[in-house]
Design a protein around this nucleic acid. Structure first.
Lengths: 213, 213
DNA sequence: ATTTACTATATTGTATACAAGATTGCTGTT
DNA sequence: AACAGCAATCTTGTATACAATATAGTAAAT
């Protein structure tokens, strides 16, 4: 199955390193050892360099002259900034989704938080987080905006890493989610987008308060 | 002045190619000839490859297996999508700028369109375009959001290329600009952001109408 | 016991070599 | 003239070599 063969070595190296960064095997600030990667992945310097340059272009890692590549460290301020930007983009996605999604898709969205009952068990709590993520990415999908989808894929993992353990309790957010869904159902794009912006800005404030630097 | 020496060759190659793309010397869809670049820039394959991989990471160019690198072509739909995303981000920048800019900075913003008098001469027309760009980038600067600034730098040239010759007439936009400035002066972040969103969405529609594909 | 100076080692940035795969151009055939 | 087939050429992806620089380690001096 020539599928694997249809990609060059640097692509595989790229994916491998990206995964190591995303799942924490390579922590922020860590130095990337090319020699190690060579023997780990069984390729020469050349594809490693290609992959590292590509990752540097996407700012997953950064290159310090004559000192190697390091996993990019985001300052707390940068994370907050990223969060604001992402909120803006997702708010636009909401607006576009309301304008262009089919009725069936809108129905799908309304189902997301329909059966949440308080108080939540530990399991239901984790399920809520997952539903939250799925709701947001469904909106982005239904927006039909490929550029926003791309941005979301590129920055999503950073935001997820940043907000780990810093999310607001479901008791607080469920109302906002339902208000957004209600606006979507009413096909009120402007209102839905505005509610989404405020939803994100409130979450952003939780991040701000946890910044020490 | 070791400043130039403080950067590696691939950095220079990167800048050189990026400039060629941005000023149109390398047109969308054009194939990038490594050999030519080698002799043009007087370096070997290696730094060229590094620069090309970095540019591929940023999606300035794309790599087709065993067929080389090509300057990325944006479809009309993608440009429209990008425009929407950028509008969202700039709207957020506006909101943040209103919340955090100093009074002096707000005064600076109010000056931007203060002396526009119709009808415009050819020269004044071009000046208006420039003022427009400066106004938008000042807002982004005053937002203090480094991530948004970064996105703007990365995508700005594409948007500019896309909208070349497709901007709405000053007669149509001056009112929107002034309304935004008025909201900023009133320190009404929400209103300013909303006006900015609509300003961009209206411009986006001009793009949509000029899409053939 | 720190700090300093020097040496050995590892890593980086760069160039180059080369096989496998694409492209171009030529030839002869219909 | 249009086209298929093939040969020559060019380009890519990969590996490797090597000098310059950074890092780590060791010995000497305070």
């Amino acid at each position: 199955m020539g599928l694997i063969e249809s990609r060059i070595l640097a692509d595989h190296v790229y994916e491998a390193i990206k995964l190591m960064i995303q799942d924490g095997a390579l922590k922020p600030g860590a130095k990337i050892n090319k020699k190690e990667l060579e023997s780990l992945l069984g390729v020469s310097q050349t594809p490693i360099n290609g992959a590292l340059s590509r990752l540097a272009g996407q700012r997953y890692i950064e290159q310090r002259k004559r000192r190697g590549y390091y996993v990019r460290v985001y300052s707390c301020k940068e994370l907050v900034d990223l969060f604001a930007a992402r909120g803006a983009v997702e708010s636009m996605a909401t607006r576009l989704a309301v304008e262009t999604a089919t009725d069936a898709e809108v129905e799908q969205l309304t189902l997301f938080f329909s059966d949440v009952q308080f108080p939540l068990s530990d399991e239901a709590y984790r399920a809520y987080e997952k539903t939250d993520r799925e709701f947001h990415s469904a909106l982005i999908r239904y927006s039909g905006n490929t550029m926003i989808q791309q941005m979301n894929e590129e920055f999503g993992y950073i935001v997820r890493a940043a907000t780990k353990g810093l999310i607001r309790p479901p008791e607080e957010t469920i109302g906002e989610h339902r208000a957004i869904i209600a606006a979507i159902r009413e096909r009120d794009a402007k209102l839905a987008a505005q509610l989404m912006t405020e939803h994100h800005l409130r979450s952003r404030n939780v991040l701000v308060e946890n910044c020490q630097d």
